[in-house]
Structures are given as C-alpha cells and as structure tokens.
Simulated scan of single mutants.
Amino acid sequence: MTGDGLILVVEDSEEDTEAIQRALSRSRPLVDLEFAPRSEAVIPRLLDPAARTPDLLLLDLNMPGMDGLTLLSQLRAHTACASLTVVVFTSSTASAEEDACYAAGADSYIYKPVNFELFRTVLQGAVDFWLPREADGAVTAGPTAAPPA
C-alpha cells in the first residue's frame, strides 16, 4: 500500500471536491485522492488492470447522467468490484434513498453537512473507520465497530 491508501471519489461538484481535499489534507496527508466527476467512467476505471485499485470509494448520489445508486448497483454486479468498500457521501437525507443504498450494497451512508467543520469531522471519521492507517505494520483502526452514522 502506498501512503495511507487510495480513495476514489465519485463527485461532480467542484465545491465538494475541493472541500474533500481540504478536509483530508491535514488529517490524512498521505492518502491519495482520485476524483471521477461522472459515474460512467468509474467501472471502466476499476476494471482497468493497469490502474491502482482503490481502498475506498466515496460516492455521491446526485450525479449527472448515471446516478450514484445505479452505479452502486452496477459495481456490486461486477465480481471484480464486489468487495470494494463503498461509502455513500451525499447531501440526501431521504430515508428511502438510504435504504435503497444499503439494499444495493453500500457499506455506509453518510450525510454531507453544509458546515465545513462538521463536514470535515464526518468525512475524517468515515475515512478513519473504513481506511485504517498502518503503523509499524499493525492496523490501528478498521471496520470492527459500528460504522459512523
């Protein structure tokens, strides 16, 4: 693993992309971030044998073209993508959408707060939970407890 891992962020909003970069730059400076502004590009990217496999996928639901829920369903249908950790990170608070995401195979569903400090705290908590740091070869965090709400 290089650094703190690779997070593939599926996000069309430039403001949210910048906020994610800012939120993680101090707490996880060694994490590599890769951004995909359109859902249609994600599966070909994940199936590319020459591309680095992400350790975590952050997925926005409200995307132009193919929405995040459709992408999530398609990801879980591919055996090569089935075990990828997918955290839905969205502004949608609709319980029906949350239920649909879990039914489609999301590992976690997290609401994007508007306030940047809360946004940063929520995002850092999710990344720390799903993307453990390695220190002296030992995992220091990970999915052994309940995922962040």
Rank of each mutant, 00 (worst) to 15 (best):
A126K: 02
R76H: 05
R52C: 11
L30W: 05
K112I: 06
L58C: 08
S91R: 07
Q124N: 15
G3W: 00
T79K: 10
A77W: 01
V114Q: 09
T17F: 00
F116R: 07
A103H: 05
T90Q: 01
F116S: 05
V9D: 01
A51W: 03
K112A: 04
S13Q: 10
C81D: 02
L84A: 10
L57I: 15
D16N: 08
L71E: 09
D67Y: 08
L46A: 02
I43P: 07
M63R: 04
P64W: 05
S73A: 15
I43Y: 06
D48W: 03
A82C: 03
F35A: 08
K112N: 06
L30I: 00
R52T: 13
L131E: 04
S83K: 13
A51F: 06
H78L: 00
T79R: 12
R76N: 02
E18C: 00
P29L: 09
G68Y: 12
A94R: 14
L69Y: 07
D99F: 01
E40T: 14
K112G: 03
D55I: 04
G125C: 09
E18F: 09
S92N: 03
V87N: 07
D99G: 01
L30P: 00
Q21H: 11
R120G: 01
P132N: 09
L33S: 09
T121L: 11
D128F: 11
D12W: 08
C101N: 01
E134L: 15
M66G: 06
D16H: 09
Y109D: 05
M1P: 08
G3I: 00
V122H: 04
M1N: 06
E14K: 12
L69K: 04
M1S: 13
E40D: 14
T121A: 14
R76D: 03
A50N: 11
M66L: 13
T93H: 04
T90G: 03
D67K: 04
R22D: 14
E40M: 01
S13G: 14
A106R: 04
P148G: 09
M66W: 10
W130A: 05
A50C: 06
N115L: 07
T121Y: 01
T85N: 12
C101Y: 02
S73M: 13
L123F: 09
R45M: 12
A36R: 12
A41S: 14
S92W: 05
H78C: 05
G142C: 06
S73I: 08
F116W: 02
A50D: 14
F119W: 00
F89N: 03
T144H: 06
F35D: 07
C101T: 02
F129W: 09
L57F: 04
N62L: 08
A126G: 14
E15M: 12
D4E: 11
L84Y: 10
F129L: 04
H78V: 00
T140W: 08
C101G: 03
S95F: 09
A80R: 13
T144S: 06
G68W: 10
A82H: 10
C81V: 01
R120Y: 01
E15R: 12
L47W: 07
D32A: 15
P148L: 10
P147T: 02
L72D: 03
A96E: 14
T93S: 13
V86T: 13
R38I: 09
T90S: 08
L131C: 04
A138H: 10
L72P: 05
S39R: 01
E11P: 06
E134I: 15
V139M: 12
